[in-house]
Lab assay of single mutants.
Amino acid sequence: MGFKLLSKLLVYLTASIMAIASPLAFSVDSSGEYPTVSEIPVGEVRLYQIADGVWSHIATQSFDGAVYPSNGLIVRDGDELLLIDTAWGAKNTAALLAEIEKQIGLPVTRAVSTHFHDDRVGGVDVLRAAGVATYASPSTRRLAEVEGNEIPTHSLEGLSSSGDAVRFGPVELFYPGAAHSTDNLIVYVPSASVLYGGCAIYELSRTSAGNVADADLAEWPTSIERIQQHYPEAQFVIPGHGLPGGLDLLKHTTNVVKAHTNRSVVE
């Protein structure tokens, strides 16, 4: 069995187990497998329904001669939608809004960016022009300005110390501490036991640490421990890039980060 097929099978099995364990909360999309990078042309966006009122959005972007996937989250909030992270750029984010209108038909009224990198804030200006209120932590807003990236308009308070959590509509926002970046936030959907790890969490097929220019490698494993301790009931975990899975993604990420750190020390 090929690795790609095995990865998709694991996603399907995880979703099936969740649907059985929580039949009222989960209505997993039966329309197909989780979209992969090879299936999404740059400039297009796919939506994948995880649970009743919960979707991931998947886009792709060219970077350094390669094409990478990027995940975000959409959560229903009454007759409105909360968006977590842009679709990595203005063109993708405009396509995301169009796809949401086509498939869901509810307005996106608020959006949260989970850290300051372009795959999370690139497209904020498109959201703002569409009347979406954009939010991020003060740290993310400051770092985005320093980096020359787009800056969300509103500040999220109460997320300055490791372990801080605040309720934001249908989700809980959690600051686990520094990891992929010093400002990275985690998003949890309690009604569906869905954990969105953003770039602080890796997919299972990833074996290298990737972009760690703004990471705190020493603190990252401790931050992941905080996530595990705060959300032990999480059933569906979405990484910032690639295929979702279960809580095993947290341990896998820790292993990859520690291996990278150990290699760096040896070198």
Rank of each mutant, 00 (worst) to 15 (best):
R206T: 05
V112N: 01
G53S: 08
A136P: 01
E39L: 04
K102G: 09
Y34T: 14
K8Q: 03
G197A: 06
S161P: 08
A218L: 12
V121D: 01
G78K: 14
L127F: 05
T182I: 10
A130Q: 15
A21M: 05
N211H: 06
V124R: 03
D125Q: 07
G65L: 11
N255L: 13
G105R: 12
Y175H: 03
A129G: 12
H241S: 01
G123M: 01
A21P: 04
V187E: 00
H241Y: 02
G245Y: 05
D214R: 11
Y48Q: 06
E225V: 09
P152F: 11
G65D: 04
E267I: 05
S16R: 15
D64P: 13
A130S: 15
S22F: 05
A59I: 14
A25P: 05
G122T: 05
H252E: 12
T36I: 12
A94R: 10
E225C: 11
L243C: 03
V42M: 06
P138N: 15
V11I: 06
G197K: 00
H260I: 15
P232A: 05
L250V: 11
L96Y: 02
H260F: 04
G163K: 11
N71E: 02
A218M: 02
G89L: 10
L82C: 09
Y34P: 12
S113F: 04
Y188S: 04
H241R: 01
D79A: 08
S264E: 03
G169N: 08
A165G: 05
S155T: 12
F63T: 02
A165D: 13
I50K: 10
I84L: 06
P41L: 04
A111H: 07
P176E: 00
K102F: 01
S191P: 03
P69C: 03
D64S: 12
P232L: 14
L47R: 02
V45G: 11
T36Y: 15
S208K: 11
R167E: 03
A129Q: 09
E157G: 12
G2T: 12
I224V: 10
Q235Y: 02
T222G: 09
V212K: 09
I227P: 01
E80H: 04
S139C: 15
S7E: 10
V189D: 12
P170E: 08
A130H: 15
L97G: 04
T261G: 08
V121I: 14
L195P: 00
